[in-house]
Amino acid sequence: MAGIISRLQRETPSPAANTTEPAVVRWSLITVALLFLGLVVFLPLASVFYEALHKGVGLYFKALAEPDALSAIRLTLLTAAIAVPLNLVFGLAASWAIAKFEFRGKQLLTTLIDLPFAVSPVVSGLIYVLLFGAQGWFGPWLQAHDVKILFAVPGIVLATTFVTFPFVARELIPLMQAQGNDEEESALVLGATGWQTFWRVTLPNVKWGLFYGVILCNARAMGEFGAVAVVSGRIRGLTNTMPLHVEILYNEFNSVAAFSMASLLAVLALATLVLKNLIEWRARRVQAEAERSAAQQVQS
């Protein structure tokens, strides 16, 4: 019995079985990696929550319940609620066009989709100032018709939408390209209209990729600082989003309130990561299940 157990233990492959480096090298490498991770990721994250909570939970919630804080939270949620659906629709449409059709200027469109990633967010914000500012191209017309875009909610939504546009499209284009056109062509030959093909074949095939893109897009939409800072004007209680509000509070040495707000953003980021991993895990599980039963099928 004891012999069997020890043999089993010996046969169980351990991670170290294939490495020949001495233990000293292995452990010092692992230590360096962990130290780095702790210093760069865990310590700052922990300090956000420590700073927010170290003067008591009461103060933490009081800071969040401030009217200006609540208004910042509301504005951030509103911005995300407009920008994310817009990017979902346009990102889906753009990737559908790019991945499934051939047309002139396709390369240009692909490059344009990457533009928001390529330019600094500050520049993205400045574009809107140039367009809609008092001295901008459409400024006089907008003033004459009493439409406020800059230093108001529409400007913030526009800037956020611009900056977060690539997330959905970048996620879907490679996926759709890998899947090819065969299934769509099958549907068309079977009598489906273009619309039916899109809803019944194209969309279900990319739904996990789409969820994933939307989650990343949402995280960025809520966290965007640079572009929004340029167009918002930072009017407290009116055009302050959460990230902007954090900066204002911090500059006023109100560190508990600043970190309370920051901790909310951090929680949001963590939730996004958990959700993203859940989706990846689910997609992997679905595939593994399919492969397993396929293997069983072949055996039987």
Partner: peptide, 27 residues
């Protein structure tokens, strides 16, 4: 294509991967 009433079988089958065999045939 949808008005031609042809059946087309693709080299790599092009079955709808998110549908069961039944739903594929019923499509």
């Amino acid at each position: 294509p949808r008005e031609r009433r042809v059946g087309f079988v693709f080299q790599h089958y092009a079955l709808f991967r998110h549908m069961t065999v039944f739903e594929n045939i019923a499509f």
